[in-house]
């Protein structure tokens, strides 16, 4: 069976194929990534907030060394998954320093998140590529889907996309994550983005995406992880097939929206490279071609993500069994 065939819907057979199990309103239950990496994130974030309020960015930055070391030392499972990723991205066996650099970059983006979400970007050097292409796309009035990944900092990207933009930017994300961002904004930065989150997993999430695009706005989503039970295809990524979601590409096709890739790459302390790349022109593939088009786009997305992973290997923030090797 291919990933794209539609399994019979009656009788309902959850997880029958692994591609489409029952989905829409399920609580995030047992997918390793929905719980493991975020627990660490939560603790780190709380600590970071405390430090930043009292001591400022520089102290926070210095403390990242012990903090990153602590989280690296205390998460053996994530370490194993990170090693599997680094081996592929670096093309060699990763050492302790490689692991530390990954954890350090991750911790840095969390520290920066606090500043970037609250719009305090003045001390940051953010290099931007492709902004003109994004503006040209938006000028056509059909909105734009921005596909990112758990790679680098989405907040850096948002800081750029949002600055002086005449259109709204909404982000599609898991409800638990949405709540976390909301709490962060409330705790530190005021209600700047509080309304601009569309929680995944509700029946009308995609309707809301549709409406934002119809108003000419941007919708950002991370297209490298699958929400519970979403349609996926196994697509070669860093030389081995990984389950990648087709949902974002099906959505883009259905709405006929233009699509750009968006990466906020961490390059060092308070240094980011934000890049927007044209990915797909507006227009709907015919009904019959929709699945094939989604698959083709997922493969192109994987290829671009792979290139970024090789060029900026320590920006990869998926600390779960990405290739599902343990299954």
């Amino acid at each position: 069976m291919t990933a794209l065939s539609r399994p019979s819907h009656l009788p309902a057979s959850p997880a029958a194929t692994g591609q489409r199990s029952a989905t829409a309103d399920l609580p995030a239950a047992d997918h390793s990534w929905t719980k493991t990496p975020e627990r660490g994130t939560d603790g780190a974030l709380r600590l970071m907030l405390w430090i930043l309020r009292r001591l400022g960015w520089r102290a926070g930055h210095l403390l990242l060394y012990p903090i990153a070391g602590y989280f690296l030392a205390s998460s053996p499972r994530q370490r194993g998954h990170a090693r599997a990723y680094l081996r592929r991205a670096l093309g060699r066996a990763p050492g302790a320093l490689d692991l530390f650099r990954l954890w350090f970059a991750f911790s840095s983006t969390i520290l920066d998140r606090v500043f970037l979400t609250s719009g305090r970007t003045e001390k940051y050097r953010i290099e931007v590529e492709g902004l003109d292409a994004l503006k040209a796309t938006l000028a056509e009035g059909r909105g734009c889907l921005l596909l990112g990944a758990h790679f680098g900092s989405f907040e850096a990207l948002r800081a750029v996309a949002d600055a002086g933009s005449p259109v709204e930017l909404a982000v599609l994300m898991h409800e638990a994550n949405a709540r976390r961002v909301q709490a962060l904004v409330t705790a530190f930065g005021g209600p700047r983005h509080a309304e601009a989150v569309i929680p995944l997993g509700t029946a009308d999430a995609m309707l809301r995406v549709h409406e934002v695009l119809a108003r000419g706005g941007m919708v950002g989503l991370l297209a490298d992880r699958r929400p519970h039970g979403e349609r996926v295809a196994r697509i070669p990524f860093l030389a081995e097939p990984a389950p990648l979601p087709l949902g974002p590409h099906l959505l883009a096709g259905m709405l006929g929206a233009p699509v750009m890739l968006a990466f906020g790459i961490w390059q060092g302390p308070r240094r980011y490279l934000v890049r927007f790349e044209p990915f797909a022109d507006p227009g709907s593939p015919g009904r019959g071609n929709r699945d094939a088009t989604a698959r083709e786009r997922a493969a192109r997305y994987a290829a671009r993500l792979e290139e970024n992973c090789r060029a900026h290997p320590y920006n990869w923030f998926n600390f779960h069994d990405f290739w599902e090797e343990a299954r």
Binding site: A12, P14, A22, L207, R231
Partner: peptide, 17 residues
């Protein structure tokens, strides 16, 4: 959606359209 017919939110959009 969910447990019953097993539709997801992309189906919901398609259905709404």
């Amino acid at each position: 959606f969910g447990a019953g017919l097993g539709l997801d939110s992309i189906d919901a959009l398609e259905l709404a359209l």
